[in-house]
Design a protein around this nucleic acid. Structure first.
Lengths: 215, 215
DNA sequence: CTTGCTTTGTGAATCGATTCACAAGCAGCG
DNA sequence: CGCTGCTTGTGAATCGATTCACAAAGCAAG
């Protein structure tokens, strides 16, 4: 299989979302242009992205909404639910444990981990919290597919190493840290502070331009 | 000013983080290679990124840590703090209001907005919550620079329109929705479900490869 | 069956970002 | 002072992703 770029996969997710909207509206087919307009890209981009995985449309007609949505579901691996654990049940971790969007997309958060003995044994958002110490065993026993890391930056690499050691193949990291994982392990980092700094740059740049009189 | 790519700005944020670590370790200079190793990129990339904004290093020596960190601070617009408001004080919004990393990087969350009358007038993480209805007035009066959107997808575009109408120039969106903003307004969207679907794709792909016998 | 309108799928062209490769600059040393 | 060892800054080359452009295909109407 040829390598598929991250940005293509990301867009497939978006397409699927918008396809569901079209489906709710009772549309039977959409053109690449319709889909592109919603997803904020171009018709050619939509067609190119889809063509990586096969041919789904009919010339002159467009794409059958329901069928394409199903195909994307398969491609993205969303046919069956994934089992997810959250490490670190502080404010961020706790919020993620209650995030509706995850469950409705087929990501079932089945347990949390925390180092705080007061939290161990309790539930957060109805999800049981285990001790950090038992991480390896629990990950295996509860057949966790995806580990979400929501611990402070300093602890993140250690958590990742342990999770990978226990066989984790996919990690979503919310700690503001650059993490290392071996080949074959999928890692995505959401760095919220970096996103804010991107906005800060844009604001500063706008101000600089204003002082300089545009350009 | 030539256009600077998002990915360059994103990396500058990372460089600054790692520079502080070097600084804490007492290093006076770093080479592009040192910085690249930490940030997970290449020496050439580091030099190219920096060269967009000027020349900061000395040949044969590397970059002066403190000076470069200061320069990045200026470039990223972090010299003075930004005033931030969070719209939607549910689980995600509430967690963001208490997120330490934001404050320590100079992003001061000064108020929240919520539609729930029970919350209006209370404080979350020590930050006062105002009514959605007063958004325009409060944004102007409290001189908000950045608006964080943490409302359900269906309400996000309306919030953004109102914020932009009140003069907001920078928006960080956590709602799983494709938002439209006029030119001149900086928008970043953090779509956590899409990130998870990226991992799902990787897992599904790995499984497909396994069934097919690698490749 | 033919004409006209639409829209896909895809090679080719373009664009942008990353990587390469090397001259130029600097410190240290004999 | 000139030589050695590093490291930057940057044009040129490469790589990858996006956009263009058009033949092929489907449908409808006459």
């Amino acid at each position: 299989m040829k390598k598929v770029s991250d940005s293509t996969v990301l867009r497939l997710s978006l397409y699927r979302r918008h396809l569901r909207e079209f489906q709710d509206q009772g549309r039977l087919t959409v053109s690449s242009g319709d889909l592109a307009a919603r997803a904020g890209t171009t018709a050619a981009q939509v067609r190119k992205d889809l063509s990586v995985f096969g041919t789904f449309g009919k010339r002159g007609l467009g794409y059958p909404v329901a069928e394409l949505a199903g195909a994307l579901r398969d491609i993205l691996g969303l046919r069956r639910p994934w089992r997810v654990a959250v490490v670190g049940t502080g404010r961020i971790g706790g919020a993620l444990m209650g995030y509706r969007e995850f469950r409705s997309e087929g990501f079932h958060i089945v347990l949390g981990f925390d180092a705080d003995p007061d939290k161990v044994g309790s539930t957060i958002q109805g999800i049981p919290v285990c001790s950090d110490d038992d991480m390896e065993r629990e990950l295996v026993e509860r057949e966790i597919d995806i580990v979400i890391v929501a611990v402070p930056a300093g602890a993140a690499q250690r958590v990742v190493d342990r999770a990978v050691g226990a066989g984790a193949r996919a990690i979503l990291n919310f700690a503001p840290a650059a993490l290392e994982v071996p080949d074959g392990v999928a890692l995505r980092t959401v760095n919220m502070a970096v996103e804010l700094e991107g906005l800060s740059y844009a604001l500063a740049e706008a101000r600089r331009d204003a002082h300089r009189g545009g350009e």
